[in-house]
Design a protein around this nucleic acid. Structure first.
Length: 898
DNA sequence: GAGGATACCTAA
DNA sequence: TAAGTTAGGTATCCTC
């Protein structure tokens, strides 16, 4: 997304700005491009404000900080008056902090935060919904026993609970028409669910029934998810409170800071209406996004410690979602600071006062989303710890609920996907913490995750040039050096906003929340499983099915996909590539694989099923066909994929660029969601693993790729009138690379398309083999390592050079190696000059050996960087050069193929 | 130096 | 108190 230029100002600086080093003196004379950009914000706003009769102020006396006259933009707009008897209240739901601290009486209340179209925030108290779970009812249980069961359980759990009786069926396994009876046990508080469950599982006796271990169901569902599923609310959807069905809360005190808090309403949980994200309900409220960055004055060579080193500056930028520029640009500084055009500087002599004022600023601005770079593990923890050290007692109230303190906690997050990760968390009711670093770590594989590297990668822009080591010196200088620091700090607050916008993070995450049904905050704080659970529960509820709680224990791994043995070599003929699109989802749909369709050992006979009623998978597992019962997972997948088709069709005809972004985000979310269902069933340490499903899926996949190879090689042969004998030279999981024996890309495309269609006809829909691309030429180095020129859109020109698994795409090499290999591959594939490739490699190595290469090119991997930090100067140089040399020597071997 | 275990990262 | 899967290449360290 391009930044809007104004007043014919200079275009945004690319790399040039970064290379320009500045001494302190030089700085004062030549404002950076970022400063010019800031001043342009000001110009634009002056024009606007002249009409409002307000002037901007550079430096504001602290006493007037929060006066509405001086900072009219800080506050949210005045809420339109609302009459609950005649007006409906509509808002986009954002945050579910679950239960308030205490339930009132025996009835739990859920807080739900959101923002209206006019940009006012709402805190909606939802009444009447209580957490619950199920257990299987003992044989012979009738409703007559409810009272006794309840009394017995109550006396054991020591807390009141409501109680009801339900007849859903278990989800796991197909049991014919037999349906177990379930007891639905409703508790007053979410935290009572676990003890009640434990009690019933470990052996519970009541009335005439013998002591029994009760199997529990859905006792491990987060309360927020429980509520959202039951009330058909998905993350970030629009919520309507119909007129007459809700009550406005009257605020008791009218202190000046009051309007910063959301408008509070009460509603019964069955009265709120949620709107599916379609048509007008796809829109996004004008959320307030705050980005901030802090600077600390550390001691020489020591990482700043909050109990010793002061916070000296806090820069903040606030932007409304959907707009292109921040409307608040502020730096809080300790000691004086020269003015910066286009931003507001607030100077403090006391650090304590600065911190307190910033907290007040945050509460006044009342952001819905807070971003920044590593704010979760650095800025917020530092601020909280520093505020505690200085006893700024009013600081740590950063959420939207008065009186709830924001507390720092350590959190250990571990998964096979992400490894072990230690994180800190801060509770902040009603606001979404959207740390850009966390977003990037989850969604992008990058060589470096520093803000500087990331900004350069995505925006071709870099940080202001200030070394960490001189921050303290700048602070101890004069108002000009502190100004330099402030510009740096502002930019560090600005870049995350720009990145958020460029990568469309907010939109994409919202669409993911809407598609999977989980709250926005879950997407950054939780793993993949919860998204599938949320969808599974929604689908199960429609069929009166309940989800069992399974104990998680790791077991044997199961067999995965086939990788066809590659016929390694360099191919100077077109190689067609055929792919099964969405292989695993389509297998699950085609064969109706699901928890609810699985036949356990002997079930087929017991239930008297005929052989036409079920299938046997390649791994020997049995599943009933959809004619007997349609599985939940296939249904979920069909919904996801058909929704994706719709989104793509809408995307095609949509002209509004903003709606286009939303739709693109949606189709992406739908694709990712469909692909993660298989992984969920195979996650042995998970909420509901089912290896019969996952191993059947991969089993079918293995069979299919094998069959595809045979089909292609049997039909596309000379004796059938084709130009050559087809040969599958490689294939991995869902794809085959075929040498068709044709000379041109066009022929390869034509036959490839034909073959894909013909092979597809041998499989059950929606399984479909598609022609995807032609590689020409193609270099097949090994399993999962190849490169080729990629022809897809046109038979005349290649779209790109595609490299898989080679050093060029791996992050455990230094760029020198990646560049070397990349150039060599270009020589081979594009120039068709393998000798040139060898010559280039030799040249680079000789440069390296003769010390003609800058050491900075060698340092990149985490290991090397760490090593570099441990060793000093020359020693590091030698160490790293050795390492790079050995990597190059070995990778040179790659090119002995020709 | 062959062979095994491990770490890391990628393909799909 | 939460955590998607398996296959597989390459580098590196260790043992015999």
């Amino acid at each position: 997304m391009e930044f809007k230029r104004r007043n014919g100002g200079p275009p945004m600086g690319g790399a040039s700005q970064a290379k320009r080093g500045k001494s302190v003196g030089e700085w004062e004379d030549s404002p950076s491009q970022f400063e010019e950009e800031l001043s342009m914000f000001e110009d634009a706003e002056m024009e606007a404000e002249e009409m409002e009769g307000q002037a901007g102020h550079d430096v504001i006396p602290v006493g007037d900080l929060f006066s509405a006259d001086l900072n009219p933009r800080w506050r949210r707009p005045h809420a339109p008056s609302l009459d609950s008897s005649s007006d409906t209240l509509v808002f986009q739901g954002l945050c579910w902090p679950g239960m308030p601290g205490q339930s009132q009486g025996k009835v739990p209340i859920i807080r739900m935060f959101g923002v209206t179209d006019s940009g006012n925030s709402v805190c909606c108290h939802v009444h009447g919904f209580a957490p619950y779970f199920y257990v299987t009812a003992p044989n012979g249980f009738t409703s007559d026993y409810l009272g006794e069961f309840k009394r017995e359980l109550n006396s054991a759990v020591l807390e009141g609970h409501a109680f009801s009786f339900a007849f859903p069926a278990g989800m796991y396994g197909y049991h014919g028409k037999r349906s177990l009876d379930f007891l639905r046990i409703t508790m007053a508080m979410p935290r009572l669910i676990a003890p009640a469950k434990r009690l019933l599982e470990q052996g519970f006796k009541f009335g005439p029934f013998p002591i029994q271990n009760y199997q529990s169901y859905e006792a491990n569902i987060d309360f927020e998810i429980r509520f959202m599923v039951d009330s058909d609310v998905v993350g970030c959807c629009w919520i309507e409170l119909p007129k007459g069905k809700y009550r406005l809360r009257e605020e008791k005190s009218m202190e000046i800071t009051d309007s910063q808090y959301p408008g509070k309403v009460d509603v019964g949980w069955t009265d709120l209406i949620s709107h599916p994200a379609e048509g007008d309900w796809q829109r996004i409220a004008p959320l307030r996004v705050l980005s901030f960055d802090i600077e600390c004055a550390g001691r020489k060579g020591i990482f700043p410690e909050p109990d010793k080193d002061p916070v000296i500056q806090i820069a903040s930028m606030v932007q409304r979602q959907g707009e292109t520029e921040p409307f608040i640009r502020t730096v809080f500084t300790l000691q004086s600071c020269a003015s910066i055009v286009g931003s507001q500087i607030l100077c403090f002599t006391q650090e304590k006062q600065m911190l307190q004022s910033w907290a007040e600023f945050l509460r006044t601005v009342d952001p819905d989303i807070i971003t920044g770079y590593n704010i979760q593990n650095f800025d917020f923890p530092y601020l909280l710890n520093r505020a505690a050290a200085l006893k700024v007692n009013l600081f740590p109230y950063l959420g939207r609920v008065r009186g709830i303190k924001s507390v720092l906690r350590d959190l250990n997050f571990q998964s096979k996907q992400m490894g072990r990760r230690e994180n800190k968390t801060i509770n902040m009711e009603g606001r979404v913490q959207f740390d850009l670093l966390q977003v990037l770590l989850r969604d992008y594989k990058l060589r470096s995750y520093t803000l500087n590297a990331v900004s350069f990668h995505f925006l071709q822009e870099q940080k202001e040039d200030v070394q960490h080591s001189i921050i303290t010196d700048l602070q101890n200088g004069n108002e000009q050096t502190r100004r330099r620091l402030a510009v740096y700090c502002l930019k560090d607050a600005y870049l995350p906003l720009r990145l958020l916008q460029k990568l469309m993070c907010v939109i994409n995450y919202m669409e993911m929340a809407r598609v999977t049904g989980v709250p926005l905050t879950y997407l950054l704080s939780r793993g993949q499983q919860i998204k599938v659970v949320s969808q599974l529960l929604r689908q199960a509820m429609k069929q009166d099915l309940v989800m069992p709680v399974v104990k998680t224990e790791g077991g044997e791994d199961y067999t995965g996909a086939t990788v066809i043995e590659p016929e390694k070599g360099y191919y100077s003929v077109p190689i067609a590539t055929l792919d099964f699109s969405s292989l695993y989802p389509s297998i699950m749909m085609a064969h109706n694989l699901c928890y609810t369709t699985l036949l356990q050992k002997g079930s087929a006979e017991k239930l008297g099923l005929s052989p036409e009623d079920f299938i046997k998978t390649p791994t020997g597992d049995l599943f009933v066909k959809s004619s007997v019962r349609k599985g939940l997972l296939p249904e979920i997948l069909e919904n996801l994929l058909s929704a994706r088709k719709r989104a793509k069709a809408e995307l095609k005809k949509e002209t509004d660029p903003f709606k286009k972004q939303v739709l693109d985000g949606r189709q992406l979310a739908l694709k990712i969601s469909a692909n993660s269902v298989y992984g969920f069933t195979g996650a042995q340490v998970g909420k509901l693993p089912c290896l019969e499903i996952s191993q059947s899926v991969t089993g079918f996949g293995r069979q299919m790729i094998e069959q595809t190879k045979q089909l292609v090689e049997s039909k596309y042969i000379i004796s059938n009138g084709y130009q050559g004998d087809a040969k599958v030279i490689y294939g991995d999981t869902d794809s085959v690379m075929v040498k068709l024996g044709v000379a041109t890309v066009k022929d390869a495309m034509d036959i490839g398309r034909e073959a894909a269609e013909w092979v597809s006809s041998h499989f059950t829909p929606p399984i479909k083999l598609e022609f995807e691309k032609v590689y020409y030429p193609y270099l097949l180095i090994n399993k999962k390592r190849y490169a080729g020129l990629y022809f897809s859109s046109s038979a005349d020109t290649h779209d790109k050079m595609d490299c898989k698994g080679i050093e060029t795409v791996r992050r455990d090499n230094c760029p020198l190696v990646a560049n070397l290999i990349n150039t060599c591959l270009q020589r081979i594939l594009i120039d068709r000059d393998p000798q040139g490739a060898v010559a280039h490699a030799k040249e680079v190595i000789s440069d390296l050996l003769c010390n003609r290469i800058d050491i900075s090119q060698l340092v990149i991997t985490k290991e090397l960087t760490r090593t570099a930090q441990e060793y000093a100067g020359k020693q590091a140089h030698v160490e790293l050069a050795e390492s790079a040399k050995s990597q190059q020597r070995s990778s040179q071997g790659t090119f002995h193929i020709e």
